[in-house]
Design a protein around this nucleic acid. Structure first.
Length: 427
RNA sequence: GCGGUCGUGGCGAAGUGGUUAACGCACCGGAUUGUGGCUCCGGCAUCCGUGGGUUCGAUUCCCACCGAUCGCCCCA
């Protein structure tokens, strides 16, 4: 038996890293005053086909879609924004007293793709959605939050790329300009682009195959088609980023794959070596029409998704180690049936009193039990054998100093509490 | 979805058309009859991704599948 293709098990050793990263991120979210939202693992397929867009790669070839026993078409969520937006509409969060609604989530996403390093069929994302404000400062705040996560974790090789896709009017004008520009060269473009030219000409711009085509160079830039208000909006976002000291690069060809984006679009990439072909760590943008598309009132929104597998890869690529708690307070060593029985009871008591303790369950000899204690980095070993049982004591040995003292059983809990408390105070 | 490389114990890694599949780490046991980290000794793959084929005989050759990995597309 093997885990399905493109999925992985996160084993205990690794899970500690995940816990560390997640707690760091949650701490940052709290500082930014974002609240957690948890939505279902699957949605009605329509949420994504309408929300994300029928012409996108995600919807066309990457969704895990199935019919349930009632014949409903359901889809394992491939991204977070559409699902969160659906929940926002369904629960009328637009009526909340505090606007905008600032949300974050940790969630598994599913995409049917050929797996590679940094590309899984089930992946973990941290994401943020801010709904109900079209203040450019919110765009800057979301970008700031994402950058804060990376920077606080210690990443250095980062590149923030931003662009503006403009409002509806700007986009329509640009779209027409693109069609006029590329149609004479249609036959020279790759198959995908010929289709894109009809369905979503914007995406011709970020085609890797046709990058060398001369028409690319002279293609109309969205930035030249932004109307007055769109341009002003973009300028404001950039101004805020600059005032926050966040460096960025404007790339007019940054388009993003999803249909719902308008105005601000951004991507955060890693420059770290040994990262292979995958460089995007997070991506997001503004989606002012999405809530309406999903049946809610006209509500502006912005958000991003951050790949956590890629975040961990980036930490690795930059040789950043996360602090891991790999110590055990106590290990209980017992030999002889009576002693072992008493040890089981005492272990229970110690745990009930807040002390971290483990014992042997492999019926190992004393030497073997000490080896286990050593391997588990136990600070103290509590020894209970026939000798101790007779005297009604437990021998407490410090594994660091090797010092061993006799402690009456009835005082064991208090003594251990003291020892461990003291240890923590002394660092 | 397409192309390249790869698949031997828990991990790393040799190897060969023929009968006991090196070695290192880890693990278990002993030397040390109740005490860890060092040392020494011993143990540890009915089996070389799965299925089929070629052959007297395959882990080694061929095919398919599965999986991993790298690249393309696209993205997180």
């Amino acid at each position: 038996m093997k885990a399905p293709r493109g999925t992985v098990d996160i084993l205990p050793k690794n899970a500690k890293k995940w816990q560390y990263v997640e707690s760091k991120i949650k701490n940052i979210c709290s500082r930014f005053n974002y609240e957690e939202i948890r939505t279902p693992l699957f949605e009605h397929t329509e949420v994504f086909s309408r929300g994300v867009g029928d012409t996108t790669d995600i919807v066309q070839k990457e969704m895990y879609t199935f019919n349930d026993r009632g014949g409903r078409s359901l889809t394992l969520r491939p991204e977070g924004t559409a699902a969160v937006s659906r929940a926002f509409v369904e629960h009328k969060l637009f009526g909340e007293a505090n606007q905008p609604v600032k949300l974050y989530y940790f969630a598994q996403m599913f995409r049917y793709e050929r797996p590679q390093k940094g590309r899984m069929r089930q992946l973990n994302q941290f994401g943020v959605e801010v709904l109900g404000s079209d203040d450019p400062a919110v765009d800057a705040e979301a970008i700031d939050l994402a950058m804060t996560v990376y920077k606080e974790l210690g990443l250095k090789s980062l590149k923030l790329v931003i662009n503006s896709l403009g409002d509806k009017e700007s986009r329509t004008n640009h779209r027409n300009a693109l069609i006029n520009h590329f149609t004479p060269h249609k036959e020279e473009l790759c198959e995908d682009c010929q289709l894109r030219l009809e369905q979503n000409p914007l995406r011709v711009l970020d085609c890797k195959k046709d990058r060398e085509h001369p028409a690319m160079e002279t293609a109309p830039s969205i930035l030249d088609y932004l109307n007055e208000s769109s341009n002003e909006y973009f300028e404001q976002v950039k101004l805020h980023l600059t005032s926050m000291g966040i460096e960025y690069e404007v790339d007019p060809n940054l388009v993003r794959g999803l249909d719902y984006y308008n105005h601000t679009a951004f991507e955060i990439m890693s420059n770290a070596k040994g990262f292979g072909a995958i460089t995007t760590l997070a991506g997001g943008g503004r989606y002012n029409g999405l809530i309406e598309e999903l049946g809610g009132p006209s509500t502006p929104g912005i958000g991003f998704g951050m790949g956590l597998e890629r975040l961990l890869m980036a930490l690795e690529a930059e040789s950043i180690t996360v602090p891991l708690d790999e110590e055990l307070d106590c290990y209980f060593v017992a030999v002889g049936e009576q002693s072992v029985n008493e040890a089981v009871r005492l272990v229970h008591e110690l745990r009930w009193n807040g002390i971290q303790v483990d014992k042997d369950y492999q019926d190992r000899k004393m030497k073997g039990q000490f080896k286990s204690a050593d391997r588990l980095n136990a600070k103290y070993v509590l020894i209970l054998g026939e000798n101790e049982l007779e005297k009604n004591i437990v021998n407490v040995k410090s594994m660091e100093s090797g010092e061993q003292t006799e402690v009456p059983i009835e005082k064991l809990i208090d003594v251990m509490k003291d020892k461990l408390q003291g240890g923590k105070q002394n660092g």
